[in-house]
Computed example of a mutant assay.
Amino acid sequence: MYVAVKGGERAIDNAHSWLAEARRGDHGVPDLALAQIREQLSLAIDRVMAEGSLYDPDLAALALKQARGDAVEAVFLIRSFRTTLPRFGATVPLDTGAAQIIRRISATYKDAPGGQVLGPTFDYTHRLLDFDLAKDDSVAPAPELPAATGAVPHILSHLNAEGLMQPESAGEGDVPDLTRAPLEFPATRPLRLQALARGDEGFLLSLAYSTQRGYGRNHAFIGELRIGYVRVSAQLPELDFEIEFAEILLTECESVNQFQGSKTEPAQFTRGYGLVFGQSERKAISMALVDRALRARELGEDIGTAPAQDEEFVLSHCDNIQSSGFLEHIKLPHYVDFQAELELIRKLRRDASAYQEAAE
């Protein structure tokens, strides 16, 4: 708290009032309703939910409104609220193969088994401003297009059947929960994936891009990128069957990377994996590329100076809440520290001047 600032708590209260006024903006413009934010800024909602580790579009809309559109601040609000919620248990593993697909593409197979679904995407637009959007929305909404129905198997399962994909290990013991325990090194892959799923999209994008430019030699193909609604179930202790209680939108990416083989492993493809809340394609792809880069040591590949291959560097800096908290703390009063350094600089200058005069 800026207790040393003239005015003390009264100044802080006034700053809060000014913030509320700035958040509201021109009162001649209608106030944004949470439903408008939730429905029309859905990709921003998805990012806040993913990095906030809480799937609740309404709360994400509230956080974005309160944060004046600052995604990182909204994530901070969601994370803070999440800590107040009781924990009832864990869900059973999600079956993304049974997702109700709204988008599914592959860069490895033109005629992908199960078909490709372009879905809602900016990929094929011309990136020109659409000034029709500046007009009042008085037209009737377009009819909702049906999603693909029925289970759609993962494309890489066909490579698995040929023995061309490195088999995935189920791991041993309980999977650690990053939201309940601090990050420790060396980190297991499940723990790394949790950290990446919560990580800042921009940071992961930069790291993923670096691997493509040679900092880690991580040339990947998108085996499959799918977006769909997945049912969430839990196994209650008093029942002998699963209970479905929710349906959430997820983005899943599986990258395919070449592996030359070793003394014990044949040449084969390896996998990078990304899974995030909502429609977050850039984040899921970035996550998959960084996940694969972080597997270099366990695969016996050469480790250079590539940042994306440095587990401690990646996982310690990908969380935007930790990063922004440490960065923004330097806005707080550091008067004593600075005065100490100021006096040190003055003393060094006086000593240097005295030495120079004595030498002359």
Rank of each mutant, 00 (worst) to 15 (best):
residue 265 E to I: 07
residue 284 A to M: 00
residue 218 N to D: 12
residue 297 R to E: 09
residue 311 E to S: 12
residue 242 E to Q: 14
residue 176 P to N: 03
residue 116 Q to M: 08
residue 227 I to C: 08
residue 222 I to C: 10
residue 153 P to T: 13
residue 323 S to A: 13
residue 229 Y to R: 08
residue 124 Y to V: 15
residue 46 D to G: 09
residue 280 S to G: 11
residue 94 L to Y: 13
residue 114 G to L: 02
residue 272 G to A: 03
residue 258 Q to I: 15
residue 276 V to C: 12
residue 317 H to T: 05
residue 53 S to E: 13
residue 167 P to V: 02
residue 90 A to T: 14
residue 310 D to E: 03
residue 336 V to W: 00
residue 132 D to H: 13
residue 331 K to N: 14
residue 292 R to N: 08
residue 53 S to Q: 15
residue 58 D to G: 10
residue 170 A to C: 06
residue 138 S to E: 14
residue 76 F to Q: 04
residue 241 F to K: 05
residue 49 M to A: 07
residue 43 L to G: 04
residue 356 Q to W: 11
residue 294 L to K: 01
residue 63 A to N: 04
residue 275 L to F: 00
residue 186 P to Q: 01
residue 307 P to Q: 07
residue 39 E to R: 04
residue 325 G to R: 06
residue 191 L to Q: 10
residue 110 K to L: 13
residue 234 A to T: 12
residue 108 T to L: 11
residue 14 N to A: 12
residue 163 G to Y: 03
residue 41 L to C: 11
residue 294 L to C: 07
residue 69 G to S: 09
residue 360 E to Q: 11
residue 11 A to Q: 06
residue 56 D to F: 00
residue 259 F to I: 12
residue 168 E to G: 04
residue 136 D to L: 06
residue 189 R to G: 01
residue 215 Y to E: 12
residue 235 Q to D: 01
residue 113 P to A: 02
residue 81 F to Y: 10
residue 210 S to E: 09
residue 227 I to A: 10
residue 117 V to E: 14
residue 297 R to M: 05
residue 130 D to A: 05
residue 246 A to G: 01
